[in-house]
Protein backbone atom coordinates (compact mmCIF):
# COMPACT_ATOMS: atom_id res chain seq x y z
CA UNK A 1 0.00 0.00 0.00
CA UNK A 2 1.00 3.60 -0.52
CA UNK A 3 0.55 6.24 2.09
CA UNK A 4 1.33 9.94 2.21
CA UNK A 5 2.22 12.34 5.02
CA UNK A 6 2.41 16.11 4.97
CA UNK A 7 5.84 16.90 6.39
CA UNK A 8 7.76 19.95 7.62
CA UNK A 9 11.44 19.09 7.81
CA UNK A 10 11.59 15.83 9.72
CA UNK A 11 8.25 16.36 11.43
CA UNK A 12 4.61 16.09 10.48
CA UNK A 13 3.49 19.44 9.15
CA UNK A 14 1.44 21.20 11.86
CA UNK A 15 -1.35 22.33 9.50
CA UNK A 16 -2.25 20.59 6.24
CA UNK A 17 -4.04 23.68 4.94
CA UNK A 18 -0.69 25.41 4.42
CA UNK A 19 1.67 22.42 4.12
CA UNK A 20 4.09 22.31 1.20
CA UNK A 21 5.69 18.89 1.17
CA UNK A 22 4.20 15.47 0.84
CA UNK A 23 6.14 12.36 1.79
CA UNK A 24 4.90 9.42 -0.25
CA UNK A 25 5.87 6.02 1.12
CA UNK A 26 5.26 2.51 -0.12
CA UNK A 27 4.75 -0.20 2.49
CA UNK A 28 5.26 -3.87 1.69
CA UNK A 29 5.01 -6.54 4.39
CA UNK A 30 5.29 -4.03 7.22
CA UNK A 31 8.43 -2.46 5.71
CA UNK A 32 8.77 0.94 4.12
CA UNK A 33 10.34 0.03 0.78
CA UNK A 34 10.25 3.36 -1.03
CA UNK A 35 9.99 7.05 -0.20
CA UNK A 36 9.70 10.13 -2.31
CA UNK A 37 8.86 13.78 -1.70
CA UNK A 38 6.37 15.83 -3.69
CA UNK A 39 6.01 19.59 -3.44
CA UNK A 40 2.54 21.07 -3.68
CA UNK A 41 0.55 24.21 -2.98
CA UNK A 42 -2.02 23.39 -0.30
CA UNK A 43 -4.10 26.41 -1.30
CA UNK A 44 -4.95 24.52 -4.48
CA UNK A 45 -6.53 21.34 -3.21
CA UNK A 46 -6.87 20.01 -6.73
CA UNK A 47 -3.07 19.70 -6.79
CA UNK A 48 -2.84 17.47 -3.73
CA UNK A 49 -5.79 15.38 -4.92
CA UNK A 50 -4.04 14.88 -8.27
CA UNK A 51 -0.87 13.70 -6.52
CA UNK A 52 -2.82 11.32 -4.28
CA UNK A 53 -4.73 9.89 -7.25
CA UNK A 54 -1.70 9.66 -9.55
CA UNK A 55 0.36 7.85 -6.93
CA UNK A 56 -2.46 5.52 -5.94
CA UNK A 57 -2.32 6.63 -2.30
CA UNK A 58 -4.95 5.23 0.00
CA UNK A 59 -4.05 6.83 3.35
CA UNK A 60 -3.09 10.40 4.20
CA UNK A 61 -1.54 11.17 7.58
CA UNK A 62 -1.38 14.82 8.55
CA UNK A 63 -1.43 17.34 11.37
CA UNK A 64 -4.34 19.72 11.93
CA UNK A 65 -6.73 20.08 9.02
CA UNK A 66 -9.83 22.20 8.52
CA UNK A 67 -13.19 20.83 7.47
CA UNK A 68 -13.12 21.89 3.83
CA UNK A 69 -9.95 20.05 2.72
CA UNK A 70 -10.88 17.13 4.98
CA UNK A 71 -14.22 16.79 3.14
CA UNK A 72 -12.56 16.95 -0.26
CA UNK A 73 -9.89 14.40 0.61
CA UNK A 74 -12.36 11.95 2.15
CA UNK A 75 -14.78 12.44 -0.76
CA UNK A 76 -11.88 11.36 -3.00
CA UNK A 77 -11.86 7.99 -1.25
CA UNK A 78 -8.69 8.67 0.77
CA UNK A 79 -8.50 7.43 4.37
CA UNK A 80 -7.60 10.52 6.38
CA UNK A 81 -5.69 10.24 9.68
CA UNK A 82 -5.46 13.80 10.94
CA UNK A 83 -4.20 15.62 14.05
CA UNK A 84 -0.93 13.74 14.49
CA UNK A 85 2.33 15.36 15.54
CA UNK A 86 5.91 14.26 15.92
CA UNK A 87 8.80 12.73 14.02
CA UNK A 88 7.55 11.71 10.57
CA UNK A 89 9.89 8.72 10.24
CA UNK A 90 8.94 7.24 13.62
CA UNK A 91 5.24 7.62 12.84
CA UNK A 92 5.75 6.09 9.41
CA UNK A 93 7.59 3.06 10.83
CA UNK A 94 4.99 2.62 13.58
CA UNK A 95 2.19 2.75 11.03
CA UNK A 96 4.02 0.36 8.68
CA UNK A 97 4.33 -2.20 11.46
CA UNK A 98 0.58 -1.99 11.95
CA UNK A 99 0.88 -0.53 15.44
CA UNK A 100 -1.48 2.09 16.85
CA UNK A 101 -0.33 5.66 16.39
CA UNK A 102 -2.58 7.23 19.00
CA UNK A 103 0.46 8.20 21.08
CA UNK A 104 1.29 10.76 18.38
CA UNK A 105 -2.02 12.60 18.66
CA UNK A 106 -1.78 16.36 18.90
CA UNK A 107 -2.56 17.86 22.33
CA UNK A 108 -6.29 18.05 22.93
CA UNK A 109 -6.97 15.41 20.29
CA UNK A 110 -6.51 12.24 22.31
CA UNK A 111 -9.78 10.40 22.38
CA UNK A 112 -8.67 7.65 24.78
CA UNK A 113 -10.92 5.36 22.77
CA UNK A 114 -14.07 7.31 23.54
CA UNK A 115 -14.24 9.45 20.44
CA UNK A 116 -15.82 7.56 17.55
CA UNK A 117 -15.27 10.34 15.04
CA UNK A 118 -11.55 10.74 15.65
CA UNK A 119 -9.09 8.39 14.07
CA UNK A 120 -6.42 9.10 16.66
CA UNK A 121 -6.11 5.43 17.47
CA UNK A 122 -5.94 4.26 13.87
CA UNK A 123 -3.47 1.62 12.92
CA UNK A 124 -2.99 -0.11 9.60
CA UNK A 125 -4.18 -3.44 10.94
CA UNK A 126 -7.27 -1.91 12.50
CA UNK A 127 -8.12 -0.11 9.29
CA UNK A 128 -7.99 -3.32 7.30
CA UNK A 129 -10.84 -4.82 9.26
Amino acid sequence: MKIAMTVWGERISPVLDCARTLLVAEIVREEVVARRYELFDARCLGQIMQILARQGISVLICGAISQEPANIIEAGGIQLIPFLAGDAEIILQTFARGQAISAFAMPGCRCYGRCRMSQCGSSRKRMRT
Binding site: W8, S13, P14, V15, C18, G63, A64, M106, P107
Partner: peptide, 19 residues
Protein backbone atom coordinates in the same frame (compact mmCIF):
# COMPACT_ATOMS: atom_id res chain seq x y z
CA UNK B 1 -1.80 20.24 31.29
CA UNK B 2 -1.70 18.88 27.72
CA UNK B 3 -0.26 22.07 26.26
CA UNK B 4 2.62 22.82 28.64
CA UNK B 5 5.83 21.08 27.57
CA UNK B 6 4.69 20.55 23.95
CA UNK B 7 6.06 22.34 20.89
CA UNK B 8 4.04 25.50 20.30
CA UNK B 9 3.09 24.53 16.71
CA UNK B 10 1.51 21.27 17.93
CA UNK B 11 -0.76 23.27 20.24
CA UNK B 12 -1.29 26.52 18.36
CA UNK B 13 -1.75 24.97 14.88
CA UNK B 14 -1.80 28.23 12.98
CA UNK B 15 -1.28 28.75 9.25
CA UNK B 16 1.75 30.88 10.24
CA UNK B 17 3.59 28.09 12.05
CA UNK B 18 5.28 26.49 9.06
CA UNK B 19 6.13 29.64 7.16
Amino acid sequence: EEAVGRFCWEVFRSNMCEG
